[in-house]
Amino acid sequence: MQVVKIAKRVMRATIPPALFIALTGYFGWNVMRGEHGLHSYATQLHLLDEARSAQQDATAEQEVWLRRVRGLKEGALDTDLLDERARSMQNLARQDEIVVPYAEHDHLY
């Protein structure tokens, strides 16, 4: 009987602290590496920074395209400049025009 009492006493003395340590370890692991833990939080912050950077890039690109589209409106186009640019891009000239050749490194545009 003495052995059984000693075994019960040892069990009563070790099981609650062991369960508490196991429960503390479980929650500690989840705080660090769980689905909503600190590592996941850091990952989410990194993804948020990337998303904000992508949004800024998209906004800048959108502004460039809006400026280009505004330049295509009828009131914004100068027909002489448009004609000059189109003919220089296509290397075309009329017979009554004087052509001034430029070197390869001297670009008009």
Rank of each mutant, 00 (worst) to 15 (best):
L92E: 08
R70M: 03
S40V: 03
E97W: 05
S53P: 05
G37V: 06
A93M: 02
S40N: 06
E97D: 13
A76F: 11
R85A: 11
S88G: 04
A76R: 09
G75S: 09
L92D: 13
R87I: 02
L47P: 02
A86T: 06
G75N: 06
S53Y: 15
I98Q: 15
Q90S: 05
D78P: 04
D49P: 01
L72C: 09
Y41R: 02
G75A: 07
W65A: 04
A42R: 03
A54S: 11
Y41D: 02
R67H: 08
A42E: 06
R68H: 13
A51D: 02
D83R: 14
A54L: 10
H39G: 01
E74F: 14
V64M: 01
L66P: 01
D96K: 11
V64T: 07
R85W: 15
Q62V: 00
L72E: 13
G75V: 05
T79D: 10
R87P: 00
L77R: 12
E63W: 07
L81W: 12
Y41K: 06
R85E: 14
A58V: 04
D57L: 11
D78E: 08
Q95Y: 02
T79Y: 04
G75L: 05
R52E: 15
A76V: 04
R85I: 09
R68W: 04
W65R: 09
L66M: 14
H36F: 08
K73Y: 06
T79R: 06
L92M: 14
D57G: 09
D49T: 08
R85N: 10
T79P: 05
H46P: 01
R87A: 04
H36W: 03
R68L: 10
L66Q: 15
T59D: 13
L81M: 07
L77T: 12
E35P: 11
D96M: 10
M89H: 08
A58I: 05
R67I: 05
R70S: 14
L72H: 03
